[in-house]
Design a protein around this nucleic acid. Structure first.
Length: 362
DNA sequence: TCTGGGGTCCTAGGACCC
DNA sequence: TCTGGGGTCCTAGGACCC
């Protein structure tokens, strides 16, 4: 939604009917994903001109690590010049508005660039992150969504500064790990590094919302089969196989549920994905009866790389995996006479879990 | 905000194993 | 046989992000 249309209440993710009701004179432009991808490539390329350390955060957003670029000069003048130059190129070469923020942490940079919209540049002086964030409403801090903002408001916390002043343990008890993470970020501390190398996907999925609630089982099956085909194609193109298949359903009343199954052996075959999905669907329909379905989705997760999964053919199934684990443990202990670990043993986790289950980038 | 589609990560309980 | 602790995996759901 353009900034002009937003004045009438149009937003992203809004059904077209509703947008046109709010703004009848709006100009409707058909989406052109190829064009966006091309512009995105050019956008990232320009940023890489200011620093090699560029992390993409989607088609139209990126973090640039400028550490070392400025040489610690006063007021961030060199950093400002580097980013201002990149922004000018984006405007002149791509014809796109762009907003940016130079700051000491990526969280502050994110908050600042949102505040610089639609076409501005904000520079936060070195060491000034916490002071810059303090007056900003908590909802503008990444990781604070509608739910957390509401709970914080109930405790009288409206700004990021007030969040920063809270007791860390209280936040942790109330919100778990996210509580501690937002506390750090509210104070201008953000341990997550800028990663130039994108991590490989953890899951691949397709879903569709029907125009009208669907009761017909065949329609659901066919839709699921189409999802399976696309998910399978993506997996094969990526050289990966999935161990877990998840079905997602949303009923007419918007209530949403998921059902998942972990397969004996990982697959990227359309048929296997579809079969697992159908089985899950049959299970839900048997248990819940006939209800209108508004959305149906299929996801593949627990992904293993193609070249690492060969061993699974010889050693599939829970029992075999357990003995694999035992074998691997024995091998690690170096017990004399212990069976060598099967070839497939390192498959799970090798490369997949390299940076653990921590918060993004921590 | 009557609500798309594609993702990520966390949590919590239960099963199972040592 | 009973009890307990710790670890991992699986499943379901939820918050959040672009």
């Amino acid at each position: 939604a353009s900034y002009e249309s937003r004045r009438y209440g149009c937003r992203s993710a809004q059904p077209m009917v509703q947008a046109l009701r709010l703004c009848p004179r709006a100009i409707v432009v058909p989406p052109r994903p190829d064009l966006y991808r091309e512009a995105s490539r050019a956008f990232h390329a320009i940023l890489r001109g200011s620093s090699p350390l560029v992390e993409s955060a989607g088609l139209d957003e990126a973090y640039v690590d400028l550490t070392g670029v400025g040489g610690g000069g006063a007021g961030g003048a060199v950093e400002r010049a580097a980013i201002a130059g990149a922004c000018d190129r984006i405007r002149s070469e791509l014809g796109l508005p762009v907003s940016a923020c130079v700051a000491g942490s990526r969280t502050t940079a994110k908050v600042g660039s949102d505040r610089a919209k639609p076409d501005g540049l904000i520079v936060v002086e070195a060491g000034g992150d916490a002071a810059f964030l303090a007056p900003v409403p908590v909802r503008e801090l990444p990781m604070v969504g509608p739910r957390m903002a509401q709970e914080l408001a109930a405790s009288g916390v409206a700004t990021i500064g007030e969040l920063a002043a809270l007791d860390r343990r209280w936040l942790q008890v109330r919100f778990g790990r996210v509580g501690a993470a937002v506390h750090d970020r509210a104070r201008g501390r953000d341990p997550s590094p800028v990663r130039a190398q994108p991590r490989s996907a953890r899951s691949v999925s397709r879903e569709v919302t029907f125009g009208a609630d669907v009761l017909d089982r065949d329609t659901l099956r066919r839709t699921l089969a189409r999802h399976a085909e696309r998910v399978g194609r993506d997996l094969r193109a990526d050289g990966r196989r999935a161990r877990t298949v998840t079905l997602k359903l949303r009923w007419g009343d918007f209530q949403t549920l998921t059902r998942s199954r972990t397969l004996e052996r990982p697959t990227h075959a359309t048929r296997a994905l579809a079969a697992a999905g159908e089985e899950l669907l049959d299970g839900v329909l048997a248990e819940r009866g006939r209800r209108g379905v508004r959305l149906i989705g299929l996801a593949a997760s627990n992904l293993v790389a193609e070249d690492l999964q060969l061993g699974f053919d010889a050693a599939a199934g829970p029992a075999a995996r357990a003995s694999q684990r035992a074998g691997a443990r024995a091998a690690t202990r170096g017990r004399p006479g212990a069976a060598p670990a099967p070839r497939g043993a390192p498959a799970r986790g090798a490369g997949e879990e390299a940076d653990g289950g921590s918060l993004p980038g921590e």
